[in-house]
Amino acid sequence: MGQENTNEQVIKKEENETLFQQLTKRNDQYMMSLDKALIAANISEERRVEIYNEMLKNLIEGQKSGQTARQLYGTVTERTNILLSAPKESETGRSEDWKIVLDGGLMMGAMFAFITGISGFIGSGQGSEMGIITMILNFIIGGFAILLISKNVPDKTKPKKGSMLRYILVSSAGMIGWMVLMTASMTFIPSSINILMPAGVNIAIGVAAFAAKMYFKRTLNIRGGLF
């Protein structure tokens, strides 16, 4: 992934050099002034390459009808302020794996704790089939299953042959593996250790886990998960 990003940056940088040569003198001066302003604002070279690649294409297209950079983007100061107020790349990309595991684990744990609790009330009302160790494993394994699936979600902006099939296969394998492990924990872990919990406790855990998921998603700005 890192190598792909590097190659893409190199391609765009070379493309920008070619596009710069097609600018009118006025537009070229505008872009040079903008470059100085963004460098002074400590905008990374990678980010500048992305900005210029989009702007240069628009400028060259605008030149065909006599439009200037100032007409398209305003003054250099105005354009600089707009770019500086835009979300940073670190705020729009994918979050670290551990954050996605946390977010997915809390969601999956909350969902099944709540479902198990409701089933307990609707059924015998005497307890839950999910023991405390199974519950804990559900949070952990569920989180890693979501991480695995989220990493294989097809990129709509860069579709690749077979990406959807890969996503379906990985998703199916992840969910089946997760269910098998959950079933195994309920079957083979002694009930003396894997203590069954009342339906009300399961529901309370589900509600608390969902509240924690929403809290961490907002405070940690978690991006790239499934929920």
Rank of each mutant, 00 (worst) to 15 (best):
A209I: 02
F121N: 08
Y73G: 09
I122D: 00
M1W: 00
T187R: 13
S191I: 04
Y30M: 07
N138D: 02
I132Q: 04
W178R: 11
Y215E: 01
E54C: 01
T116M: 10
I193T: 04
L148K: 12
I60V: 06
N27Y: 02
Q9A: 11
S191G: 13
A40I: 01
R223C: 06
G206M: 07
I140V: 15
T116N: 13
T219P: 00
A145C: 12
M214Q: 08
L56Y: 04
I122M: 11
I133M: 04
A37H: 03
N27A: 05
N5S: 05
V207N: 03
I11E: 14
G224E: 11
N7S: 06
N58V: 05
I141L: 13
Q126K: 15
A199Y: 02
E61L: 11
L34M: 09
I168W: 12
T187K: 14
L23H: 04
M175V: 15
L137V: 13
A40D: 07
I100F: 05
I11S: 10
G109K: 11
R218G: 02
A86P: 00
K213P: 00
Y167H: 15
M179Y: 10
I189P: 00
K36Q: 09
I122K: 10
F20M: 15
T157V: 12
N81F: 08
I193A: 08
N58H: 15
I136A: 15
V76K: 13
I141P: 00
E129H: 14
S33F: 02
M108T: 10
S191K: 14
Q63D: 01
Q3M: 07
Q63W: 01
T75F: 11
I222L: 08
G123N: 10
E17F: 12
G206A: 07
N27P: 02
G2N: 08
I118R: 05
D35T: 13
A113S: 14
D97N: 12
Y52V: 05
S192T: 11
L83A: 06
E129Q: 09
A208S: 07
K158D: 04
D155Y: 07
N16P: 02
G225N: 07
L181M: 13
S171D: 04
N81M: 12
L34K: 04
E15Q: 15
E14Q: 15
R166T: 10
